[in-house]
Design a protein around this nucleic acid. Structure first.
Lengths: 172, 172
DNA sequence: GTTAGTGCAAACCTTTTGCAGCTCT
DNA sequence: AGAGCTGCAAAAGGTTTGCACTAAC
């Protein structure tokens, strides 16, 4: 369980493990990934009605600065909020379908190569890296092209109707 | 000049090329890269005092949706605003120094490979991809370690002072 | 002449801050 | 005991929206 490791890390840094922080850490850890502050707040608030939204923001900031969670924005698919996931697994890219919102994760060589090249080419010390890709998933590509086709026809129809209206008075 | 191509694209889509849009497009095109909405507004507003901030936001949104500019956030180095650059050059990653704010651009194989792998592995149709890397540039690594060392010493000193204070009443 | 686009003001949403009181160690 | 943390209310920062007027085609 990641939350335990995170708690140790925090303890070692002399950061207090309050009831609220433990709850948030556990929720972040368990509940899948890509929670935004509001979603996390809702979950936490349900378990502890006294817990305030502000505490969620402060905790997330703390964890982010401590390198315990990573911040994403998933191409702002749903808005301008940020998403968080515990930093455990290998580095990975996030692939977001801009139609259905599904998020895939990509682990692979190119990410490591990129990292190594950036380090050696620029003498750069990398602390965080993130790759986000937006587009249409296999399923939505079909649906998307149907939608576009429909829109095209609707427009053409409207155009035809317009064409039937009395012509611009020029010949009248 | 990119702005011209962009203008053609817009015209073809039946989007009106207003005075304001032309100005914004030209500014985006010329003035280096990584402008945020406010910076772009300041520049535009200087040339055309009637031009409103809202128009900047609306134009950026239009250009972004049309794939003519890319939106970045440069690891939120300076805050939560977004940055924009015209989409012309090859795909590239942005490397941001979290100490001095310098932004480097990385062009390279790993980016293409990543793209190709995502397309083939997931059957994904990519519309936008972005990679941002945060850390310390070669120059700032040195300065950073000095800063950390200084902080460490300052803390140790404070700790020493604290140590001289009457001990926790246990032996008293 | 239409319809899209602009400016203005006001709203909106997410996140941060100031401060008094509470709590972990 | 006391610094660190929380909750509450209020502010901030960035961006969007409603509406009447203006301008591009």
């Amino acid at each position: 369980m990641i939350a335990e490791a995170a708690k140790d890390t925090l303890r070692q840094r002399g950061i207090r493990l309050t009831r609220q922080r433990q709850l948030l850490l556990d929720l972040l850890d368990k509940s899948g990934q890509h929670l935004d502050a509001e979603a996390l707040y809702q979950m936490a608030h349900q378990k502890d009605p006294k817990l305030n939204r502000v505490t969620v923001y402060r905790t997330l900031k703390l964890l982010k600065e401590g390198g315990l969670v990573d911040e994403l924005d998933l191409m702002h698919y749903t808005g301008d909020q940020h998403y968080y996931e515990t930093r455990t697994k290998q580095e990975h890219a996030h692939i977001i379908c801009l139609r259905c919102g599904k998020v895939e994760e990509f682990y692979g060589d190119p990410l490591h190569k990129l990292r190594r090249q950036v380090e050696s080419m620029f003498g750069f010390q990398i602390l965080i890296a993130r790759t986000e890709v937006g587009g249409y998933c296999a399923h939505c590509q079909v649906l998307r092209s149907q939608e576009v086709e429909l829109a095209r026809r609707t427009l053409a129809e409207a155009g035809a109707v317009e064409g039937r209206k009395p012509a611009r008075k020029k010949s009248s």
